[in-house]
Write a protein that binds this DNA or RNA. Structure first.
Lengths: 409, 409
DNA sequence: AACATTTGGCAGAGAGGATCACAAACCCGT
DNA sequence: ACGGGTTTGTGATCCTCTCTGCCAAATGTT
């Protein structure tokens, strides 16, 4: 049921403390030793020993910090080494594919995104595209042990914990064991995890974006469909099998239009890309270019474009009011399509929230556009890939030591 | 952000292990020592030392178990002592008030419920009623240190962590600091926690009811209003300030009827008690008696009663489909009103779920009536009151020792 | 230049669980 | 009834990890 039904021992303490240090350095950036002491509540001695191991493993480095004018012996600045441990992140979106190499500490060492024609691309073709894209990005890591994991974001319903792609309607996929196939194609031997694009967008905003430091977050993702990523009490809501967060398929208008999912009146049918384009009189299947055109027209005051945005904004507000009531989040982050239309819908959303949401929850929530924009799911995939290192650094300490690896015991 | 940013030490390990043992005994009932060894993963030696402390504090006892036919030395049965540590639970519902005394291990030592006329009862009157009700129940604990905490369930929106009753529309309360007032009136010096009735119903079903052993649970509560209690990843979803779970106010029919909360088309306006009674042609304000009459009529085949139940069942299914999509729970537990009408709506709900919910999540969820029925929130309040003991038993070890208490150090 | 302040370094202490050998208590077969 | 096999409780000792306390180092201040 939870971690605490399993017995703890001294080793557990070490692991937790090492994890706390590594997590702080990865998430909050460089810190002095004394700041680490303050943050973790450990003593200088304990920090020293633990840091010693991390330094020996080349995961972190200590630098003499420039004098900062305070009395007392200066504390060296500890920072994560971005090239000792890196992860590969992949994003399989509807209009594009992307790949990134992210170093421990969060530095983005490389990032490539290519647009793709919309439509049902086969799994094999997609994998070929990704391998081609990842090749040069991955090149610097060949021959070293720096690559520790791969994370993949997919616009679809993904089963946890095995990462099976149960259904990706906009890709035309069903029950695809993506991790296995990609692992072989990429020629990497590290763990590969797959997750839903919205869930990873939420994780990215939580760790690197507009929700840093918060515990209860709703990330709303708009690709062709509408997805949601939920952070509850500081941790991702996955549900029983990883299918949680599908807010786009709440039947918000049960007498409304049929949804491609088989249901009727889903929120997506009112706020999705197709709904927006249809109401504004654009080609529903046109995708990204059509949305660009719509936004350009709206900027020049086109009444039909503005009316369509107002309608979508209204339905956005209605649905968000319900979700705010259910989840009582501190922040709602608008990603994807909603990030792009945010300037045109922000006021309407606030109005609807005032009208419909419970006062207590309403007063606490802010609605903001995504900070990471299009790259949120990609960077979230990287963060997911770092999770194993962050929660148990001890398991990784042996693998980076360049000297100890050569010599025997 | 989370527990693991704070440094761990040996003492933490002891606390966690003690907590694991106490939790197992409280939640799973009597276990042999060897079963505890298996469950916690600790060694016999460690279990022995930890149990020694618990026995010395009189929190648990060891009995020679009746021989059970297996070879090897028999392992003594360890069980929680129900009278060493007890909690008082109070339930302030719309139609009734209840009080219970629950012992460590979960035994209900006393339970009293009294009906109350519906309407706006003052805080002072309610407190007086509760004190009168609690008096005899609490009598056996006077003069001892057995009472460790009080938990209160209220049909309203409660702020965490201080338990302020922000709004209880069916009681007519607003911003009531209930814990302070009740503590004085009851004459107890122990911590008092207050929480929402649906949240506690969910907790009770998770620990003692139909959701035992599950991690993702939606408890749907129907008093006059409709509330929800969510268990996500094994722990309660509270949201940023404790207001989470208000599923009754999802705008499921935005062109529908105004809700007393100020919004329009809330789920509650379609499935709440008033909606049920209205559609069946009964007095909306009649409350419990009217519902009983409706159910009796439905049992004899009354078309209007059955039609109203069918309509409510349909809207129940529609809303649950959305919630199942969002939360991907393993189980949905119907409490309160929905527990009572379950036989009449179960089939309709399942049909609507088949029609509207995403296949992946739909396949995993079961819809069941509450096992604990009317007492779920009350028993949940008791479980909440036990939380401090379960998560840090070490803090309580000193207070029960009858011998050590007398002699000083 | 002397002092105050903060921090790193290091040895010893303390806490807590694991290990291991042994004894106790049960079963079963003869 | 008796001895072997099996499982479990007991207790001494060991191992791991952090804390405590003292000293040295590095900086600012007077």
């Amino acid at each position: 049921m939870d971690w605490d039904v399993v017995g703890q021992r001294s080793e557990t303490v070490r692991r937790a403390n090492l994890s706390a240090i590594v997590r702080e350095l990865h998430l909050r950036g460089p810190l002095s030793r004394s700041e680490l002491v303050a943050r973790t509540g450990l003593t200088r001695s304990a920090i020293r020993v633990l840091l010693g191991e991390l330094v020996a493993a080349d995961l972190v480095s200590e630098d003499r910090r420039a004098h900062l004018g305070t009395p007392g012996r200066p504390s060296p600045l500890v920072h994560a080494n971005p090239t000792t441990a890196v992860v590969l992140a992949l994003d399989i979106a509807v209009d594009s594919c992307a790949v990134a190499l992210v170093g421990f500490g969060g530095e983005v060492l490389a990032l490539q995104r290519v647009d793709r024609p919309r439509g049902h691309l086969s799994v094999a073709d997609t994998i070929a595209d990704l391998v081609q894209l990842a090749g040069p990005v991955l090149a610097p890591t060949r021959g070293s042990d720096a690559l520790i994991a791969v994370g993949i974001s997919v616009a679809g319903i993904i089963r946890r914990p095995d990462g099976l792609v149960r259904m990706a309607p906009n890709l035309g996929w069903r029950d695809v064991a993506l991790a296995n196939q990609l692992g072989g194609a990429l020629g990497v031997q590290v763990p590969i995890s797959v997750a839903n694009e919205a869930d990873l967008g939420a994780l990215a905003e939580l760790r690197r974006g507009s929700a840093v430091g918060l515990d209860d977050v709703l990330y709303l993702s708009g690709e062709v469909g509408v997805g949601g990523g939920l952070i509850v009490g500081g941790r991702p809501l996955t549900g029983a099998a990883g299918y949680g967060g599908e807010v786009g398929h709440f039947p918000i208008r049960p007498d409304g239009a049929p949804c491609h999912c088989g249901s009727v009146g889903c929120w997506e049918t009112e706020i999705g890309e197709r709904a927006l384009l249809r109401q504004a009189g654009y080609d529903q299947g046109g995708g990204r270019d059509q949305v660009d055109a719509l936004l350009a027209d709206a900027a020049t005051g086109s009444p039909s474009a503005l009316a369509a945005l107002a309608a979508v904004g209204r339905w956005l507000g209605i649905g968000l009011a319900g979700l705010v009531n259910i989840l009582n989040p501190q922040i709602v982050v608008l990603g994807g399509l909603f990030h792009r239309i945010h300037p045109f819908v922000a006021a309407t959303i606030e109005t609807e929230l005032d009208r419909l949401a419970l006062e207590a929850s309403r007063a606490l929530v802010r609605i903001v556009p995504s900070m990471l924009a299009e790259d949120a799911p990609l960077l979230g995939a990287a963060e997911m890939a770092f999770d194993a290192l962050l929660s148990d650094p001890a398991g990784y300490l042996g693998r980076f030591e360049p000297l100890a690896a050569a010599g025997g015991v």
